[in-house]
Computed example of a mutant assay.
Amino acid sequence: MRLLFSPCGIGFGHIGRLIPLAHRLKSRGADVLFSTYGEALKYARKEGFPAIQVPEIELKVKEDGSVDLKRSLTDPGPFLIHHILLKQICAELRVIKRYKPDVVVSDTRASPIIASRLLDVPVITILNQFNIIIPRKKRFLRLSRWADHGSIAVLSKIWASSDKVLIPDFPEPYTLSEGNLNIPERYRRKVEFIGPILPSYPDQLPSKEELREKLNVEEGKKLIFAPISGPSKEKYPFIKILREAFKGFPEEYKIVMSIGEPEKPFLLWNDEKMKVYGWVENRFEYLKACDLIVSRAGHETLMHSICYGKPIILVPTPSHTEQLINAKKAFDLGFALVLEQAKISRETLLKSVEKIINSSFRDKVREINLMAKRFNGMEAALREILAHVE
């Protein structure tokens, strides 16, 4: 059994849900190859998988880490964007011809789907964003119309050309990415909501009390876990702001931050209240041991928050429409508070932390957590992949 995994290479959200699948399939004797770029390429190789680099598509970012929507869609411009996509398709065609996979698994990438269709290879797509949303602000109005009626609108047809589309989210009314999932009726028969794909579930770990002792969290301390990841230009301005805000926190809090650098799995900075790691291998132990999470509004982090029953403070990347939509849904469901990056200070962050700890947020996330226990995205994805292996 030969499997090709082709995730979007921006950040760790896409690769993060394919790596557990790849490990499970490898343990069953599968031969696994990755084709990707960016952070995902480095992470796949760190996890011990062979990985082929393909041409990169990236979001343009401003100095404050916010997404520059106009430059992302106009620089290098529609012609060169299509040229890069064509290069990606050609690269995937070469990989598939040489590797001869039984199944291709794409995570939010169009080119491996197109290449698989051209070569008549089964392809399964995993995604939580069927559409790309551009804000209806005056300065983006022309871009939003182009997105709706131009090249980006074609994406939904490409996703639907897959043999199956798996959405690692919950059905309504708990769909966190619902604002990004405007799925045309004619495509819905191919779509299945499977729940999050996790390498480790809470009931597979020791108790919260045992983990707090293992992680040296003193009795009576409130543990805040801040797993920050994403492209470097987006995350480092945020990390700097967050560290400054945390420095002034009272002694009753202990903060553990991970800055999403897999090649640095060690402690970078330490004082009595805060530890900053380049990467934590035991992320899910911290998720179970903590009292709340502070992070960006990436889909995977929100899924982890629900599955581990933890309330969360979200700081969406400015102008990142997917994260803004995710954050609004999490707030509407009642288990998250949302802060603007530009308004973060010791006072605003501490006020939000105290509000989320001393209110109904924890009860609400536990209620949603009971629903989440009915889903096992890992097993559902495995069944679908194996069903398409001839």
Rank of each mutant, 00 (worst) to 15 (best):
F12P: 09
F12T: 09
H14W: 03
G16Y: 01
I19Y: 00
L21D: 02
A22T: 10
R24C: 06
R24M: 06
K26T: 10
V32W: 00
L33E: 02
G38V: 11
A40D: 07
Y43W: 12
G48K: 08
A51G: 11
P55T: 11
P55K: 06
I57G: 04
L59V: 11
K60L: 07
K62E: 13
S66L: 13
S66I: 13
S72G: 08
S72Y: 06
T74S: 10
P76V: 09
G77C: 10
G77T: 08
I81G: 06
L85N: 10
Q88Y: 02
Q88P: 11
I89R: 01
C90I: 10
C90F: 11
A91S: 15
R94P: 00
V95A: 00
V95F: 03
V95R: 02
P101D: 07
D102R: 07
V104A: 00
V105P: 05
A110H: 09
D120M: 07
V121K: 06
I126W: 03
I126Y: 00
N128H: 13
R136M: 08
K138V: 14
S144D: 13
D148C: 11
D148S: 14
D148N: 15
A153Q: 12
A153I: 05
S156E: 15
I158Q: 06
S161P: 13
S161E: 09
S162W: 05
I167P: 03
I167T: 05
P168V: 10
S177K: 04
L181G: 07
E185L: 12
F193V: 10
F193P: 10
I194E: 05
G195V: 11
P196K: 05
I197C: 02
S200K: 15
P202D: 07
P206Q: 06
S207R: 10
K208R: 15
L211F: 05
K214H: 10
N216D: 14
E218G: 11
E219T: 12
L223E: 04
P227F: 01
P227A: 01
I228C: 01
S229A: 14
P231I: 09
P237I: 11
K240F: 07
A245R: 03
F246L: 15
F249T: 12
F249V: 12
P250E: 09
I255P: 02
I259K: 03
G260M: 04
E263V: 04
L268V: 12
W269A: 11
N270S: 14
E272A: 14
V280K: 01
E285L: 01
I293W: 00
V294L: 10
V294N: 02
R296V: 04
G298T: 05
L302T: 03
L302K: 04
M303N: 07
H304K: 12
S305F: 08
C307I: 06
G309H: 08
P311E: 01
T317I: 15
A327S: 08
G334W: 01
F335S: 04
L339H: 02
K343N: 14
K343V: 07
K343C: 06
K343G: 07
E347H: 09
L350I: 13
S352C: 13
S352H: 10
V353Y: 02
K355M: 12
I356W: 03
K364Q: 13
N369Q: 15
A372C: 14
K373M: 11
K373H: 10
R374L: 08
N376L: 05
E379M: 09
A381K: 02
E384R: 07
H388K: 15
H388V: 04
